[in-house]
Design a protein around this nucleic acid. Structure first.
Lengths: 238, 238
DNA sequence: ATCAACTATACAACTAGACAAATATTACAC
DNA sequence: GTGTAATATTTGTCTAGTTGTATAGTTGAT
């Protein structure tokens, strides 16, 4: 008779549950064991259904935590319906940031050269996550010379914004003096933060910002989720 | 593929932090809770990573006090640093190119919009491979409006260069009016051309070049081998 | 016979929360 | 200032629960 696999009907049932709002975005679904009991099947059958939903981008599973409804209510874009374009110059000003860590430590070789410091000089470091529509799109780290900006961490904690924090510290304006871009494979932790699978392509960006006098004030590294971000370089105006 | 446990990746990150001098001998690391927040994991996962470092004798923890750097790693594997910098403004002009195909066909929707044509207008297409030091670094496709440049294919065949071919066709100079960049996974054919494995991260670039009057003359798409190419944006030359 | 769907079991990796033990910090008395 | 007690931090340990993966076996249709 009906040759629809059980897992498919379970997937369909879950899909309608989500579509009808019985599980909102970000909500945790019942555990696989609970779903298995509810439908009277083995856990693996439920997993098959969940994996189907995950492929469609409807849910996102976190090992040890549960399965969550993804913040992607609409279906996939064909063409340019959904545009996650972020301009390079605006990459430090995207609204929706979360602070992961604010630390103070010694500068390594690369950072020292970029900021015009000596190796071992103290730097303030801002680790954060850029979000758009609730979805993580970039994982960044901003490094500032501690001697020049002793109070920038509190400014960052208050504003969440590199630009505003630098303003508080006396830098009215700054310009990006260099940007380097390459493609990489996501590491395990990057994948975790960006809700990707390990090895997924990411856009790796390294940049230096300087004050009007050309003195470097910030050394920033960002990892963008390749599938969710397109960098648009406007060589003209804008 | 490589199912790296998250804790291992965190351990590696901490190891490099120590190896590169961001935390010196005797320094206290951030607390387990802070590290957990920074990496977006549970404290126990961080503890697993720290226990790994402790086993290696890199750090030692004191209950109630914190985790301190005991020594520097003696053999820290530094990844092969590839330094192939290519200017984004030169991404369509890299020397060492081989022609894969010169074709004439109808413009699709995207190309038509980019070049200011109608869908179905004829375009000349240049498929090629960019090389550096004998190694393939990019796979590109340049699309030109056939009506405006009827003889560009022969010019391309002679010069192998987009710039020179456009010069022959009467375009003394052109500027890049838009560039979009994202990271993707290499398809099978791209991997073949670029000597990568399928799924390896590649840098996908789409750009439009226009004559001094702002009229689009070329629509180019390039796939760069992520592990061999770093795009350097020179924001300072204006 | 073969293949897909499903079951069964076991373990690894990670999360979650609670509490204990050691240390650091602060407030206060003197 | 100095010593002490109270409080807050921080690491150590424990229990329990959840998802990810691997292996082996059963069932049923073509």
């Amino acid at each position: 008779m009906s040759k629809t696999p059980v897992w498919k009907s379970i997937a369909l049932s879950l899909t309608s549950d989500i579509a009808e709002g019985r599980y909102g975005t970000g909500d945790r679904l019942p555990t696989e064991a609970q779903l298995a009991a509810k439908h009277g099947v083995n856990r693996h059958t439920v997993r098959r259904a969940l994996s189907d939903l995950a492929d469609q981008g409807l849910v996102h599973a976190r090992r040890g935590a549960g399965v969550f409804v993804a913040a992607r209510p609409t279906d996939y874009p064909i063409g340019k319906r959904v545009r996650y374009h972020r301009s390079i110059s605006a990459s430090g000003k995207i609204p929706g940031k979360t602070i992961l860590a604010l630390t103070t430590r010694a500068a390594d070789e690369v950072e020292a050269e970029a900021l015009g410091l000596n190796v071992g000089n103290t730097v303030h470091v801002y680790d954060g996550l850029s979000l758009a529509d609730g979805q993580p799109i970039g994982l960044f780290q901003s490094v500032f010379p501690a001697e020049r900006f002793p109070d920038i961490l509190t400014a960052l904690a208050d504003t969440h914004s590199v630009t505003k924090a630098l303003q508080i510290c006396g830098i009215a304006d700054y310009t990006r003096i260099s940007t380097r871009l390459t493609a990489r494979a996501a590491t395990a932790t990057q994948a975790l933060h960006l809700h990707l699978s390990e090895g997924a392509p990411v856009l790796y960006s390294v940049g230096i910002n300087a004050d009007p006098d050309g003195q470097p004030v910030e050394y920033g590294r960002t990892v963008f989720a390749g599938e969710r971000v397109t960098l648009t370089l406007n060589d003209g105006d804008n």
